[in-house]
Amino acid sequence: MGLFSGLFNNYSEVSVQELQEKYGAYLTPNETIQTGFKLIRDAFVFTDERLILIDHQGVTGSKTRVVSIHLDAIYEVTMETSGTGFDDCEVTIHYISSPYHKSNNISVASYKFEFGKKFNAKPIYTTLMSIALANNKRLNG
């Protein structure tokens, strides 16, 4: 199922040890991996500081694009559970992409994660929503 799950843009969970071995070079000093998920080649990793998106590009996958979304920039999270048929479960995060979070001209972006029908995304949603709520209080307080 892992191969087909990856082909249909669905992430599967990976052990912290495997993530540390493969993506530990992208961590800053004192940053620790909490959990992570991967497709066939691509992955996303939650650390205690940020969300790291790893996109292996090209036919061989030797070219890699790494994007960081700081957890303190996430302000909204939505989840859509899978229905009948071929529907997948989706979690979308909305975040501030400009470096200054308390300015008049902030820019925002969103990123959508798709998981397989049987994947329980509720723990990811509640964790991210807790972060978003804390960020909203901090930014608007």
Rank of each mutant, 00 (worst) to 15 (best):
S15N: 06
K38F: 00
I40L: 14
G24C: 00
Q57M: 13
L51W: 07
L39Q: 08
S12E: 13
L53K: 09
L39G: 00
G24S: 04
T28Q: 14
Q34M: 09
R50L: 03
I40N: 11
T35D: 00
T32Y: 12
S62D: 07
L3V: 15
R41Y: 10
A43Q: 01
G36L: 08
Y23T: 06
F8T: 13
V59Y: 05
A43N: 04
E21K: 15
V45A: 08
I54H: 03
D42F: 02
T47G: 14
F37V: 03
Q34N: 09
R50D: 09
N10C: 15
T64K: 04
G2R: 08
R41K: 15
K38H: 09
F37K: 05
L27S: 07
Q17R: 07
D48L: 11
F8Y: 05
V14G: 02
F37N: 03
Q17L: 09
Q20S: 10
P29R: 06
L3P: 00
G24Y: 14
G24P: 06
I52V: 13
L19M: 07
P29I: 05
I33C: 06
Q34S: 12
V59K: 10
V45C: 05
H56Q: 15
I33M: 06
E21W: 03
N30D: 14
N30L: 07
Q20N: 11
Y26M: 04
T32K: 14
G61V: 01
S5D: 11
L19D: 08
L27T: 12
V16R: 07
G6L: 08
S5W: 01
L7E: 14
T64C: 12
V16M: 01
S12L: 03
L7S: 12
K63V: 01
S5A: 06
E18R: 02
Q34I: 14
Q17V: 12
T32V: 15
T28Y: 15
E18Y: 02
D42K: 04
D48Q: 13
Y11Q: 01
V45W: 06
T47M: 12
L19N: 03
R41G: 04
T60W: 10
V16W: 05
E18T: 14
L51G: 14
G24H: 04
L39H: 02
T28I: 05
F37H: 15
F8G: 02
F8V: 04
F8K: 00
R41A: 12
Y23Q: 12
F37Q: 08
I33G: 10
D55W: 04
T32N: 14
H56N: 13
E18A: 11
L39I: 01
F37M: 08
Y26A: 02
G58Y: 07
V14I: 12
S15Q: 00
T60Q: 05
L51R: 11
V45R: 01
V14W: 00
Q34E: 15
Y11R: 08
E49V: 10
R50E: 11
L51S: 15
E18W: 00
A25M: 09
F4N: 04
N9P: 00
Y26G: 03
D48G: 14
E31W: 08
H56L: 07
F46P: 07
